[in-house]
Design a protein around this nucleic acid. Sequence first.
RNA 1: GGCGGCAUAGCCAAGUGGCAAGGCAGAGGACUGCAACUCCUUUAUCACCGGUUCGAAUCCGGUUGCCGCCUCCA
Length: 466
Amino acid sequence: MSIQIYNTLTRQKEAFTPIEEGKVKMYVCGPTVYNYIHIGNARPAIVFDTVRRYFEYRGYEVVYVLNFTDVDDKLIKAANELGEEVPQIADRFIEAYKEDVGAFGVKEAVYHPRVTENMDEIIAFIKSLIDKGYAYEEGGDVYFRTRKFNNYGKLSHQSVDELQSGSRIEVGEKKEDPLDFTLWKEAKDGEIRWESPWGEGRPGWHIECSTMAKKYLGDTIDIHAGGQDLTFPHHENEIAQSEAHNETDFARYWMHNGYINIENEKMSKSLGNFVLAHDLIKQHDPQMIRFFMLSVQYRHPINFSASLLESAKNGFERIRNAYENAKHRKDTSMNLTQDKDEWLEEIRGLKRRFIKEMDDDFNTANAIAVLFDIAKSANLYLQKDQTDEEVLDAYAELLKELTGVLGLEIETTEELLDEEIEAKIKEREQARKDRNFQKADQIRDDLKDRGIVLEDTSQGTRWKRA
RNA sequence: GGCGGCAUAGCCAAGUGGCAAGGCAGAGGACUGCAACUCCUUUAUCACCGGUUCGAAUCCGGUUGCCGCCUCCA
């Protein structure tokens, strides 16, 4: 069974077949780095990181490219407001992006190209489009001749005429046609600029992705991904540019993630109702946030609220508990062989289910449901009077392996306790033996205040961090 | 106006023809010195109306409500 991907281009799930055996060339539209990212920006980062991890789990090499838009109108505006230069701002927020997204367990891309580092390629790309008649220069700007590209609208499933009727016609535009879009923009006074055959200026937004995808991945890539709102016009324009230029298909599979809503309203920087990832990870376990995001199918919208986060926290805790319980029980486990094989077969079956769910368009919601079933199964096994080390290991390893595929870190207690706390726990155990429960409870309360939660099991007392 | 999405238990959320997954919260019980963890039990006329079918949450037609894109946006 192969991996199925819902392709925006065809509006259906398709079996994934790579261009090159065993390799996935994947381009994800990255952020414009003029501010900290909000959690809506974090969703594609997390979702497509999970896609990447799953491909890798299934044995593919993934060439993962995520670009940074480090020059555009918003950056220029931010620079003016803050009294800084564009490159300074870009550098700062690229670092912030990597830090925030890293907290969510997102791996670094193989390539993180920046617009300003690919200016020669971008200019050459535009020049070639002009040579082919797909673009024209007008007063220092360069525009793409949209109607000349016959397949325009194939991704968003709109005809050029329908788009035309809905489009705004700006007064004083230099465009031949309202549907044409900017490839190169003439610099205004004081704006950051690059030399070009059309005078000093900077690239339009869409051209960077076409150029950098080609440079790092080739004329045709396997997967192009981004937020739903990029479908039109951004991705549609990329297709027009790239296919006009390369004269071949640009991307075989297009993936788009749904929005995050706040109070059922779209969150966006322009609406001002956003939650910055940077702030959120100070208040909540970022791993739990990732778990929350993956608990919904990536194409569906997610509503965001404190109570939903609380619910996710408790759910994630359940999976972590099962893992810790299995590991803890192992210390006192005996090796028994009677029904070992049945349990190991059960464990293999659960793993197959996880893979089956992920194969179906990365259905992380169902994959997480399987994680809960593994936790339940492990907990049931742990109820037995006697357990087998191999089975306990198999449960713990499976939980670690599959949470890892989702980019979730299940380990919570790498740090060892200091001696004082260790001594307190021993002291309490003695108190319990002496049936001095008042003292025992006192110690437990004290440690709880210090963030250490104690649990008494039939195999002895164990602790975890709150 | 064009294109598209969504409506499933108190909440979240899977499920595209065959007795409605899973989680959170609640209630009751077991275990426990008490807790915690865990286990067991427990809650759905799948927005509405009509149709196709032996059989529909799922397919078709219609209705209502909410949302997105068509303009910078993940």
